[in-house]
Design a protein around this nucleic acid. Structure first.
Length: 436
RNA sequence: GCGGCCAUAGCUCAGUUGGUUAGAGCACUAGAUUGUGAUUCUAGGGGUCGCGGGUUCGAUCCCCGUUGGCCGCCCCA
């Protein structure tokens, strides 16, 4: 029994574990590039203050933080948003707008292990800076959907719940609530799905009893499931802020509909995301069966860049986690079997044949073919077995007889047929076979 | 931070009402097989039975603690 293990909550990636992860990353990168997003990266270690500035002092409990040898308080990054805000903020005036960036990176949180959650995980992060209008939401939500569709998931596998903190603010303020009361109510709404009306205790404890009319009004908003529901409510209330905001909703949903994505999006004001820094539209992606934690989440955060020391810069972003994503893909049979197979497996007779084969092996590898061969002298039977198990489609046979005739045998491993080709035509023959 | 379940080979698991040297299948390595892949057969390596303590003549088994894992709660940037 090995005496060293990986730390709790951290994962080793053996080749068969890395293959699905590589698949996720490759598809995410492809989607982001298709949408014109540029990839960036950043340090894993950041100043602890960066996270305290964004989330408050309590955050430290959930961080991998320590004091470095220079006496600096530092933390492994638990998320990308503060970092990307810092980066964009520092060069905001030199960057062409809109700024469309993405990253794929590891994050660290000191939390209890659970299904779909570990202490080290990867996220795709996509953000748009410098666009205050709903066009940014259209682009970003459609990218989120594409990141999941690119992995083979369809509208009956997942959906995006779209909500809006501004709508709640305008609505609740129209009902007479002050800013603190609104924040308290958003906290309650965040819990409503799980706790039911018991969630309102969060509000009543801090702000006193809820009048029945307030509760009814909140429940009515929570019951909204479509744009037409929303239009009906807003029309009835005849409030200028709400009416203006409704135009944004029409634009976002209209844009997504024009992209053919209506089936992936549902209006659901029960999503508010606990974070205080979100300032407008917020959204979360879930699997339809609903037995996994959220696949992705995001929203608008127009004040954060400034709060972290940059200029005022509107922003909207989202993140997709790798762990829940992988669970869902595995459930749906959408993960690839093996990462890497050779194209060609070379069977060698003995020492002299091995040296003869090396020249051709090197030449084939030089032009990009994946070529493997046994390192020990083995019987032909064993070598063919290895060739089959390697997943190669083609075997090249370098035996005493072949070399004496100046040929090499090409064996089609699936058809069990072989042909002889002259040594100097091996590369061409391999190319013809593999491209056929 | 709180509760429930679990811990024997790389994996899946058996086992002993407490008793000599702890087993199987799969996987891995080698041989049967010195020029052709399946199946099969044979052999081999691999375990301080998670760790520590207690009870006992004797503990992988019973008790306590601890660590780790799974599930749920809290949290979830």
């Amino acid at each position: 029994m090995a005496s060293f293990k990986s730390l709790p909550g951290f994962r080793d990636f053996y080749p068969e574990d890395l293959a699905p992860r590589t698949h996720l990353f490759r598809q995410w990168r492809r989607s982001a590039h298709a949408y014109g997003f540029q990839e960036y990266d950043a340090p894993v270690l950041e100043s602890l203050d960066l996270y305290k500035a964004k989330s408050g002092d309590e955050i430290e409990n959930q961080l991998f933080s320590f004091t470095d040898k220079g006496g600096r308080e530092v933390a492994l990054r638990p998320e990308m948003t503060p970092t990307v805000c810092r980066m964009v903020g520092a060069k905001a005036n030199a960057l062409k707008r809109p700024i469309k960036w993405f990253s794929i990176a590891d994050f660290f949180r000191y939390e209890r292990m659970q299904k779909g959650r570990g202490r080290c995980f990867a996220q795709f992060n996509g953000d748009i800076f410098g666009e205050a209008g709903p066009e940014a939401e259209i682009e970003l939500i459609s990218l989120l959907i594409q990141c999941l569709r690119g992995l083979g998931l369809a509208a009956d596998d997942f959906y995006v719940r779209l909500s809006d903190r501004n709508l709640w603010f305008y609505y609740l303020e129209a009902l007479g609530l002050g800013e603190e009361q609104v924040r308290g109510m958003l906290g309650a709404i965040d819990k409503f799905e799980r706790l039911g009306e018991a969630a309102f205790e969060i509000y009543t404890k801090a702000h006193g009893e809820m009048p029945e009319t307030l509760k009814t009004a909140v429940l009515r908003m929570l019951a909204i499931k479509s744009l037409s529901d929303l239009e009906r409510l807003v029309t009835e209330l005849d409030n200028e802020q709400l009416t203006n905001r409704l135009a944004d909703w029409r634009q976002v949903l209209g844009g997504l509909d024009a992209m053919g994505l209506s089936d992936f999006v549902s209006v659901d004001l029960g999503v508010v995301r606990g974070l205080a820094y979100y300032t407008g539209f917020v959204f979360e992606a879930f699997d339809r069966k609903g037995d996994l934690r959220a696949l992705a989440g995001g929203g608008r955060y127009d004040d954060l860049v400034k709060k972290l020391g940059g200029p005022a810069l509107p922003a909207v972003g989202f993140a997709i986690g790798d762990m829940t994503m992988e669970l869902l893909l595995k459930e749906r049979g959408l993960l690839p079997e093996v990462a890497s197979k050779p194209d060609v497996y070379v069977v060698v007779g003995g020492g002299a044949e091995r040296l003869a084969a090396f020249g051709d092996i090197a030449a084939l590898r030089e032009v990009g073919y994946r070529v493997d061969y046994p390192m020990k002298d083995l019987g032909f039977g064993k070598q063919f077995k290895n060739a089959t198990e390697s997943g190669a489609r083609l075997a090249l046979i370098y035996g005493e007889d072949e070399l004496a005739k100046g040929v090499v045998k090409l064996r089609d491993l699936s058809q069990r047929e072989e042909v002889e080709v002259p040594r100097d035509q091996v590369a061409a023959a391999v190319r013809d076979f593999l491209s056929a």
